[in-house]
Amino acid sequence: MATVILLRHGRSTANGSGVLAGRAPRVGLDETGQAQAGALVERLSGVPLAGLVTSPLLRCKQTVAPLATARGLDRLTEPRLSEVDYGDWTGRELRTLAKEPLWRVVQAHPSAAVFPGGEGLANVQTRAVAAVREHDATITAQHGDGAVWLLCSHGDVIKSVLADALGQHLDSFQRIVVDPASVSVVRYTETRPFVLRVNDHSSDLAGIVPPKPEPKRRRRAAKLSSDAEVGGSTGRKD
């Protein structure tokens, strides 16, 4: 299977305001977020991309716009990668929400959390993981096992995908940190995903590109191994 870059959108106008933006319309990037979006072009310069998939919300579309233009890639909008529907919590201050009884559930047992008038976090994980795996299978079929693609989504959505890839219960997903404009990377195989990076802010991501097959194997479509290296990876050989 292919390798997916899980990109959280750049810093939005809501991120610094202490307000839960959710799916509120017209929440875009602030000046820092715009700079982060522009920097993606150079950060990913060493990574060939087979596709761009994005949440339908404005802040995600703005984040990948410079990259899409620089690469001449079309952006595919995927509703299942949209932000959590926080329902009645949308637009409220986080310091106020922290006093709600549900806040402790979200922190300690997120799999049981259902936002009033919105959706549950378990549903978020189900829809997001299904979307990622479907797009990954499609891109693999079109471009091969060595393909790399990028999706742009939201913090809790990406955390739920990473929890699944790590084999963790959703109740542990609050242990994962995903900052604005950070990159996490998962390589899917037939039997298991491999998590290559989490919350990465580095300026060079060329190391996530799968190595090219050895010359004697290039005549056939060799699949990337699903086996983990005993003793730990020895690093790239190219």
Rank of each mutant, 00 (worst) to 15 (best):
N199P: 04
R218M: 10
D200V: 09
L162H: 01
E190I: 03
P180G: 13
D164L: 03
S202F: 02
I176L: 08
S184D: 11
S226A: 13
S226I: 01
P215W: 01
L162A: 02
A181W: 06
S182V: 10
D204Y: 00
R220L: 13
K216S: 15
P211C: 05
V198A: 11
P193F: 06
I208T: 03
S203I: 02
A206P: 00
P193A: 09
E229F: 13
S202P: 01
I176V: 06
A165I: 11
I208W: 06
A181C: 10
Y188C: 11
S160N: 08
S160P: 15
E229T: 14
K216N: 13
H169C: 12
V185N: 03
R175G: 15
G167S: 12
P213C: 04
K212F: 12
V198T: 08
N199E: 04
R197I: 06
A228T: 07
T189E: 02
S226Y: 07
V195S: 03
D204T: 07
H169E: 14
V209P: 07
P215Y: 02
D227T: 11
V183L: 15
L224T: 12
A221Q: 12
Q174M: 13
K223D: 14
R192S: 08
V178H: 07
N199A: 04
D171A: 07
L196G: 00
A228C: 07
R197Q: 13
P193V: 03
L166G: 12
F173V: 07
S182G: 00
I208V: 06
D200M: 04
A165C: 14
L162S: 03
S182F: 07
T191Q: 15
S182C: 04
A221C: 05
L162Y: 02
K212C: 11
D164W: 10
L162M: 11
R218Q: 14
H201I: 07
F194Q: 00
P211Y: 12
D204S: 05
S202V: 05
T191F: 14
R175M: 15
V183P: 13
R218C: 02
R217Y: 12
T191H: 14
S182D: 12
R220V: 05
A163M: 01
R219Q: 07
I176H: 01
D204I: 07
P213M: 03
F173E: 15
R197M: 13
P180Y: 13
Q174N: 14
R187H: 14
V185R: 00
E190G: 03
S182P: 04
R218T: 05
L162V: 11
Y188G: 12
H201D: 00
R192Y: 05
L205R: 00
R218V: 02
P211K: 06
L170V: 06
S202E: 11
E229N: 12
L166K: 10
H201Q: 09
V195K: 01
T189D: 07
Q168N: 05
A228S: 13
G167M: 03
I176K: 01
S202Q: 06
F173L: 15
G207E: 08
P180V: 12
D179S: 04
I176M: 03
V209Q: 13
L205E: 00
V178P: 06
K212Y: 08
K212D: 15
D179C: 05
L224V: 12
D179K: 03
H201Y: 01
D171C: 11
S203E: 08
R218N: 00
S184C: 11
T191S: 15
I208N: 00
V161S: 01
R217L: 09
D227Y: 15
D200H: 03
V177W: 00
E190D: 14
V177M: 08
P213K: 00
D179N: 04
